[in-house]
């Protein structure tokens, strides 16, 4: 089964796509997402700014409505082969199943059962937290397989696994903000960027 090699995709497209996934970011963060050269991404951002595809100030950019429309036109063409790739779509279905479990895990991390209701987790019970971190390890092992299959089809996606690994590693080392923290590259943040990336590539809609 032939797949689109990421090398064949132009960085012009990928840089804007990467920015759409990260929402608001500088060229460095997008280059990191794509495993690309920062100066090349910065140059593309300058050009895309001039074309009105993206907007930004102080080194932080966002995709403009015109750029979102342009991306929407590009996706079915660029990812035509990927969308027909049985292995990739099967990996995506598996991703969704792991996703359901991960979301439940994030909720269990943030809240805890008390007398039949859920109350905010005060992290006073190390055993409760440890069981959840253990489950995260379990799901991380499943995520490794799923992202592995995804990146076999689209090598660029392998970068997400490195970022997930880094988040999981921080959690293990006791920096538990990296479970579901919002402003940092927590497991939840990276996972959701990957989710968004896959949804855009495969032309699917978010279920929740």
């Amino acid at each position: 089964m032939p797949t689109v090699s990421e090398q064949e995709l132009s960085l012009d497209f990928l840089a804007v796509h990467g920015l759409a996934v990260r929402k608001a970011a500088g060229p460095g963060a997008v280059a990191d997402l794509l495993n690309a050269d920062e100066t090349a991404v910065a140059a593309i951002f300058d050009a895309a700014m001039a074309e009105g595809k993206i907007a930004g100030a102080k080194g932080i950019f966002m995709v403009a409505p015109a750029g979102q429309a342009w991306l929407a036109d590009q996706y079915p063409v660029v990812y035509a082969t990927a969308r027909e790739d049985g292995e990739l779509t099967a990996a995506y279905e598996r991703f969704e199943r792991v996703n359901t479990q991960l979301l439940a895990l994030f909720t269990d991390w943030q809240t805890m059962p008390a007398g039949g209701q859920r109350v905010p987790n005060d992290h006073s019970d190390p055993d409760y937290d440890r069981v959840i971190i253990d489950r995260l390890g379990d799901l991380h092992e499943r995520a490794e397989r799923v992202v592995g299959s995804c990146s076999a089809a689209q090598p660029r996606l392998g970068r997400y696994l490195e970022r997930l690994e880094a988040a999981y590693d921080k959690v293990l080392a006791g920096d538990t903000d990296y479970v579901s923290g919002v402003r940092i590259d927590s497991y939840h943040t990276v996972w959701f960027e990957l989710h968004e990336d896959l949804l855009r590539m495969l032309g699917r809609q978010r279920q929740e």
Binding site: T100, F106, T107, Q110, E208
Partner: peptide, 15 residues
Amino acid sequence: LGGSTSHAAVVTRAL
């Protein structure tokens, strides 16, 4: 849409 484990729920609790 979404239940207590949705993305919105996870992010708002984190915040």
